[in-house]
Design a protein around this nucleic acid. Structure first.
Ligand SMILES: [Mn+2]
Ligand SMILES: [Mn+2]
Ligand SMILES: [Zn+2]
Ligand SMILES: [Zn+2]
Lengths: 134, 134
DNA sequence: AGCCTTATTTAGAATAATTCTAAGTCTTAA
DNA sequence: TTAAGACTTAGAATTATTCTAAATAAGGCT
């Protein structure tokens, strides 16, 4: 919940102003913004940045596993700085997206029928729905 | 596993040749084809069909819950005639996509931390990985 | 500091999946 | 039969994203 003030550092990468700002925007408000959202926010502090650079920075951050890319259906990709394994819930009333934790100690094979020893490299769980007592 | 010979019938919809053929192609080979794949296959029996019509038919079938639309990351949508609730596994070696059953009697809240009484309208689970002894 | 090499950024063009538009065709129900 | 509406079609448009090529910035080294 608290904002880390550590500077992002990825070995072999130049921590340019643009990369730092894109990353800062993602950690500052964890609302799963799209690239266009990030662009709008970064422009406030870095007016000269281009949308291409925002896409480049996001791609770099994703490649280096500093953030996650999250897709809902065929909408624009969204970006998430939560590196813990988690799913996403899209609230149909408010439009907000919430991180969903997996129950502690649960294994994929506890709820999915997958062959023994399958090596899972990626797992995406996304839900849409309506929260109670809304 | 057996192919049903029942004709698809959706109340209020005209079962045109195009819709029947698109649906037949989807049930005939359950390999999760893209719209372009479906187009190629339907053209064999219905050479005059247009890609727009394939998209229209797929959209109609999805809207009426006769088939499911499945998305992997930002790839082209794929289509699946399996109406049981299931997830998808994308085999990174062969590129094939497999349906994944949920374990019997499992509830979402058994493995996900969601507020009580949340009304889930949609659930997407997709995995990528490598099968054993490949 | 000045110079060189390479990474990064940038604007704009290109791409690709999908959706839209408008016109033609088919179905169905009086 | 005929009119209304449903459906299909070709091609244009849209939109998120990626690509291209030129400009700039960052480091490393002297
Ligand atoms: Mn996210
Ligand atoms: Mn599928
Ligand atoms: Zn998240
Ligand atoms: Zn399926």
């Amino acid at each position: 919940m608290s904002t880390s003030t550590d500077t992002l550092n990825i070995p072999g990468l130049r921590m340019t102003k643009q990369r730092k700002e894109v990353y800062r925007v993602l950690t500052e408000t964890r609302d799963h913004p799209t690239a266009a959202d990030v662009y709008d926010r970064v422009k406030l502090s870095t007016p000269g940045i281009s949308l291409a650079t925002v896409y480049n920075c996001l791609e770099t951050l994703v490649e280096h596993k500093a953030v996650k890319q999250v897709n809902f259906e065929r909408e624009s990709s969204r970006y998430c700085p939560n590196l813990n394994e988690h799913g996403h819930f899209h609230d149909e009333i408010t439009g907000t997206i919430h991180d969903i934790k997996f129950k502690d100690g649960i294994k994929l094979s506890d709820f999915l029928d997958i062959p023994e020893d399958t090596h899972i490299t990626n797992l995406d769980i996304t839900l849409r729905g309506i929260l109670p007592k809304n």
